[in-house]
Write a protein that binds this DNA or RNA. Structure first.
Lengths: 344, 344
DNA sequence: TTCTCTACTGTGAACGCTCACAGAAGCATG
DNA sequence: CATGCTTCTGTGAGCGTTCACAGTAGAGAA
């Protein structure tokens, strides 16, 4: 309806002053309406809202930030090697989840990708300079120097996955890796499989360690002897899964199941098994981990452990905002879920 | 070496004033050094730089933006349906490329994902309010209402891929789809194939149309009659590729090659061919499009047309910054390249 | 000398907002 | 009637920059 912003040329946008004049109140009152509306009479409230609608006013975030010292934005920092970023759809799920959760608070997300050492320094400087209020950190190899640096600088920080080696307080949100692994191994056992191979994640990551621990625990509890030849260390990459499965097949040709610590590796493992003439699940049952979008695209479709990415991203944002608001760091562990499909 | 920022508590960061005092010059001089250093004596230049290093000064972007009216940030806007975002690694390549190119200019990238109508409105409002200086737009179905809206609001905008239906000026950067398609079909012909099927992209996208046009052109030029039964329309999804290949096989069992308009669809097509007992490339040669990271992960590895994503992202950023700087919209078409692997 | 030009520097005045404060009005309490 | 408390409102100051302008100094030209 309003004609005020048409006609091609960009004109000076309305300020809080314009709104105040329009509503017949002062700047202060408009500001109070904008920030929660406490101590404002209903009449003023209404007049201001009407004026805002009429003028098409949108707050100038720079002016606000200048005085509040907050930027009302957060960084999403990725310190993964870039191939991971390209290959692993979980990042996309997480990224979208965080973007959405932040959008609900009207907080923009700044994407920061630290591949090289140079980039790391630049980003670290950017963050510690206060250009973002907090950081969502994604990095599997989480003895991360950036994390320590930011924490020491007092920047609110939430990691995805449990950081290792950080003696002190860093907030994190993670799925219950060990419990998920236990579920999967129990499932494979329930199918009558006993020679269950495992391709782990990198053992310098908590996820890698925990999933392997779950595997060992359940086998132990079930009285199945753990054959160390059945365990091979992977790297969460598709190629790694392929190589791992090939290696296991050569070591123990008679294995009847495979627990692979990520769906991406499981895809590689499926290729290797198929190339070796094994039928899945008849000869070898295969269980993955993640429930990534690709899990339904393989044939056979992948039985896997679902990581609740939507909840993970939502919790990361919640914890980060709480921390920005002054609360202490905290850890959140979310339950996983066994998703049965065709491969096991 | 400097102790000034240690000790846990965050202290007030140094301002341009502190630097000026330290260097024994005025705010204005420091500001000039910060912004290009014209009309500053070498001595002052040096003193200011030393003071900046000593104090650890970083410019307050909010204060700067408040007065310049620029935000010195740009938005990366995704209006794709979210499954695409999850599935297609090309987005990640593009996203990383843009992030890097912008980082070189010290410009942060704000990620905006418009899935729902609500999100679209919120984002559009955010952008037209001037919170970003310009927008990098990714949306294959590019009769996009957001694009038109932003263009009308005078927001600098660069699309990835040629927008259709936009009568007037929207900058874009795209690969030469038609030429790429021509290369691939020529290659398939050179292998002696004559019954070449095609799975196209969506025909409401310029890429989809252009790649099909290239296919038709080369066949025409080579005197091979175009059999319409050999053409099926896809949707750039893996499942679409699978269905498309199955359909083509049922229509023309004797086809000896397949040109698939995206690598993701080509992956699906490979599955379908394999399921149908066809050997690739012996029975059916398969050519993809994109050279996505997954192209080397299939077996056989995919012969494809490489889209120069790194150059595309770099050009998008270059064109956007130029436009923010006041230049007119422009279009950039980049050459593709045939990458021969195993599948054709 | 005097004037002009160039290279450089300092100084107020914004930019649009929030915050602390002062004060007004209404109402209950001493 | 004074006093206090609560609810609401307006005002001035100031956040840290950039920008326009004024001004200085030195070099060269008339």
């Amino acid at each position: 309806m309003t004609m005020s912003n048409q006609g091609g040329g960009r004109r000076r946008p309305p300020t809080i002053h314009d709104v105040a004049r329009e509503a017949g109140v002062s700047r202060g009152t408009v500001s109070r309406v904008l920030n929660g509306g406490h101590y404002v009479s209903p009449a003023a409230q209404e007049a201001v809202n009407a004026a805002i609608r009429k003028t098409g006013y949108v707050v100038n975030r720079h002016a606000r930030s200048l005085i509040t010292g907050r930027s009302d934005s957060v960084g999403f920092l990725l310190t993964e090697p870039q191939e991971k970023f390209f290959e692993d759809p979980n990042f996309n799920v997480l990224l979208r989840g965080c973007t959405q959760a932040l959008a609900a608070h009207d907080i923009p997300l700044l994407l920061m990708i630290a591949g090289t050492e140079d980039e790391r320094r630049r980003i670290s400087r950017y963050i510690t300079a206060g250009h973002v209020d907090g950081v969502l950190l994604v990095s599997s190899h989480s003895g991360d120097p950036v994390a320590a640096e930011l924490r020491d600088a007092g920047v609110p920080l939430v990691a995805c996955g449990k950081p290792i080696g950080q003696a002190s307080k860093v907030s994190y949100v993670a799925a219950d890796d060990r419990d998920g692994a236990r579920d999967m191994v129990r499932h494979l056992l329930s199918l009558g499989r006993r020679r269950i191979g495992m391709i782990t994640g990198p053992l310098d990551t908590p996820g890698g360690v925990e999933r392997l621990a779950g595997y060992r625990e359940v086998l132990g509890e079930s009285g199945v002897e753990v054959d160390e030849r059945l365990i091979v260390t992977g790297d969460y990459s598709r190629a790694g899964g392929e190589a791992g499965a090939a290696e296991l097949l050569s070591r123990v040709p008679g294995l009847d199941a495979l627990f692979v610590a990520s769906d991406l590796m499981a895809q590689g493992a499926l290729s290797a098994l198929q190339r070796a003439g094994r039928r899945v699940p008849e000869d070898v049952a295969v269980g993955g981990f993640d429930d990534s979008p690709a899990a339904t695209a393989t044939s056979p479709a992948l039985t896997t452990i679902r990581q609740p990415w939507d909840r993970i991203s939502a919790e990361m944002v919640r914890v980060l905002l709480a921390q920005i608001g002054g609360e202490d760091p905290s850890a959140v562990i979310l339950p996983t879920e066994l998703v049965k499909r065709e491969s096991a």
